[in-house]
């Protein structure tokens, strides 16, 4: 299963490839090749963003500023995070996280980071969001999770699951990763998924994981593109405790580089919903 996914399915399958797979399936090959994207269907969190204004405060808090060390959240990010409606607001059934180019508290950009820390956390389950991404050099949106014990057990020991990361300068490429002790930052266990004949900034796509005791399955829309298990990580498996959810839109930083003159502002990440199942 693991090898098949890792080595054979790099991109969304073309029709001939799909026919081939079906033929192989008909020929009685391993049942492992059936892809079941999501099996967990008991909805436990459903943030649909149906009320205009600020997102539900019972679920969503904010990180404000440039990070505890003032260093762009450890990534040299350039934005100052706020909870102003200019940067985060629900409108017409969609959560808008907007990065703006403006001088603010010493930064050249503003944006927002929402998190469910101390408000919602869960061990295992299915976590997904339907999002339309922004675009442009230096634009870095993410939908991700951190171990809920991060205050006692600092990163990377707490663990991080990046359900969706994306570089605005690569509008067809999604990155899904896990970070933990011995495999964090540039050494994260990571895989790219390339959208063929489409892109992530022109329509909504579902970004999700299904997470169990010894695996994290990564999917986009109805396509499972990666499975990470304890055998894949080069350190202890730390994904066996509650995690909370984060959504943010960074500007600049080590993952994407700085915006350039061609980057259009403002840029907005549109979130239709966030749903969690177990």
């Amino acid at each position: 299963m693991k090898n098949f996914i890792k080595n054979n399915i790099e991109k969304r399958m073309t029709l001939p490839a799909l026919v081939m797979v079906l033929l192989l399936a008909v020929c009685g090959c391993e049942t492992d090749e059936d892809q079941t994207v999501a099996t967990l269907t008991n909805l436990v969190l459903s943030e649909e963003f149906d009320s205009d204004g600020a997102p539900n405060p019972a679920v969503w808090g904010y990180d404000i500023g440039r990070g505890p060390n003032g260093d762009g959240w450890g990534n040299q990010e350039l934005q100052y995070y706020t909870d102003r409606s200019d940067n985060v607001e629900v409108q017409n059934g969609v959560l808008l996280i907007t990065a703006r180019q403006e001088s603010f508290e010493g930064a050249s950009y503003t944006s927002a980071r929402l998190l469910t820390k101390d408000l919602f956390e869960q061990k295992f389950g299915r976590f997904e969001a339907r999002i339309r991404l922004p675009y442009g050099q230096g634009i870095w949106p993410a939908f991700w999770m951190l171990g809920a014990d991060i205050d006692e057990n600092p990163w990377p020991a707490a663990g991080e699951i990046d359900i969706m990361e994306y570089r605005g300068q690569q509008p067809t490429v999604l990155v899904g990763s896990v970070h933990g002790p011995g495999y964090s930052g540039g050494d994260a266990i990571s895989k790219e998924f390339i959208l063929e004949n489409d892109r992530f900034d022109t329509g909504f796509h579902i970004f999700g994981i299904e997470w169990g005791p010894d695996y994290v399955n990564f999917y986009v829309d109805d396509f499972l593109y990666n499975r990470i298990t304890p055998e894949d990580v080069t350190g202890p498996w730390v994904f066996d405790k509650p995690f909370f959810i984060l959504m943010n839109l960074a500007v600049g930083g080590s993952f994407v580089g700085a915006p350039n003159a061609e980057t259009e502002f403002p840029q907005t990440m549109l979130v239709d919903y966030v749903r969690v199942y177990n």
Binding site: Y135, P171, L195, E196, N197, D198, R199, D201, T202, E264
Partner: peptide, 10 residues
């Protein structure tokens, strides 16, 4: 070709 990824017209 129909590339499907020509976007963001300005």
């Amino acid at each position: 070709e129909r590339l499907g990824n020509i976007a963001q017209p300005r």
